[in-house]
Design a protein around this nucleic acid. Structure first.
Lengths: 236, 236
DNA sequence: CGATGAATTGACATGACTCAACAACTGTGG
DNA sequence: CCACAGTTGTTGAGTCATGTCAATTCATCG
């Protein structure tokens, strides 16, 4: 069990200028005009969180959604018997808390895995804007569909078949940039909770992959991958 | 392997009157006015399909989305090694092919499990309407979120833990009406493909549940469930 | 350093898969 | 209406992967 701190006052204080955001091209609000933003009265705020911080919990009410500027957050749900399951990872440029557009409570526990910067938007403003601006409307649908596509991949790639195949799929999914061959992983507990295997099996599988040189440790939890080799495992 | 027939000309011919649809209160277009519908030029058509029929395949291009009036359809994806996985079930009042609002190809294979009636809408019309009508806009977001919530449940309840727990969860999910204690199930192969277990394990688990009287066969593939007993299995 | 939690590894138990035989059911043609 | 073939479901025996429990090493941080 990781020690977790619920976030209270971590706001940078600096309000964000969405119009001149460095992530603008890929962000939720890409394509919006200055005029569009004028109707947002409550300020957009920026937030910095550290590993272990909890952004929100299941069932918690709120009225904000978030976009991630940088970092990594896990979305967790729990089973009746107490088992925890990570159902999604959200990273840079992803949107968090979309469900607030529809419901009044969050459906996951959002826990920070790596130092993370995010922006916070009042849901009312987003709802209003999305009805005025076809561009944002389309953007939102894109986000929703992306989340859904990833949920499907999570199911087929990370929850089906043998532990080795799941692990290989996870490692390949964790390669950030196109063409790169390295990836960062996290605690065995989290890996187990993603792949629905025990921490021991996770550890053993990683050890075996290292032995077979399918992955080579560059530094702690940072690996260079034998992409072709891993793909062979998946196809096998 | 089930024998499958790709659908060609199964249209009823009868065009649907969305304004006076019997499912109107729960359908995608609930809340729209006659005026709204006037902008839909291409007719909405109704379609009847039989078990085994394939509505669309992965990667197939199209420009329609569907709502289900009655019946049951499975959405299937395939893994590199050929394993098939059912990622969702869609039933009465659900929307099918939402991804067409965003992409140009379908992301699943949609295979009919029970005799099914559906309505077909041109995606351009829905896109246009959704930008004019805040109600439809909101409806669409509801649908998307619902699909996402179900995807999460699929992951946590049907793909995590032991076969018995998964099966118990599936049976409870298959109870249609609130308060009912009966459910219809389908082939062992499909059950296996939902729970990510083999057909033998599926069969054995069902046999055991029958022996323990957790489920009692009313007729072929129709069972009365011991809800409390199944919940005990899940919690155990 | 020592203390704590995380990761690894081993030995063993068990649940699920594989392979195989057989039973039940379905639809077809005679 | 029956016989037959083809499909689907059931059950058993043996194997293999993963879970469980426990001991040990490693890493981090005060």
């Amino acid at each position: 069990m990781t020690k977790r701190v619920t976030i209270k006052k971590a706001w940078d204080g600096s309000n964000t200028d969405c119009l001149h955001c460095s992530l603008r091209s890929s962000a939720l609000f890409s394509g919006l005009t200055e005029q569009d933003f004028e109707s947002v009265h409550e300020p957009v705020e920026q937030l910095t969180l550290n590993p272990g911080d909890v952004l929100y919990k299941i069932g918690e009410s709120g009225h904000h959604l978030f976009t991630i500027r940088d970092g990594l957050i896990k979305l967790v749900q729990y089973l009746p018997d107490g088992t925890q399951r990570i159902v999604r990872l959200v990273k840079s440029t992803d949107v968090l808390g979309l469900e607030m557009m529809v419901a009044h409570t969050y459906e996951h526990e959002a826990v920070v895995l790596r130092p993370t910067q995010l922006c916070r938007y009042p849901k009312e403003a987003v709802t209003r804007l999305s009805q005025q601006s076809p561009v944002l409307h389309q953007n939102l649908m894109n986000r929703w569909q992306k989340a859904l596509t990833e949920a499907d991949a999570w199911l087929t790639k990370l929850s089906t078949g043998q532990a080795k195949k799941r692990m290989a799929n996870l490692l390949l999914l964790l390669v950030d940039r196109e063409g790169a061959t390295d990836c960062y992983i996290f605690s065995r507990e989290d890996i187990g909770s993603i792949l629905s295997i025990t921490i021991e099996t996770a550890s053993r599988t990683i050890s075996e992959f290292k032995r077979l040189q399918l992955m080579t440790e560059i530094s702690s939890n940072h690996f260079d991958l034998d992409i072709a080799g891993l793909e062979a495992i998946i196809a096998g």
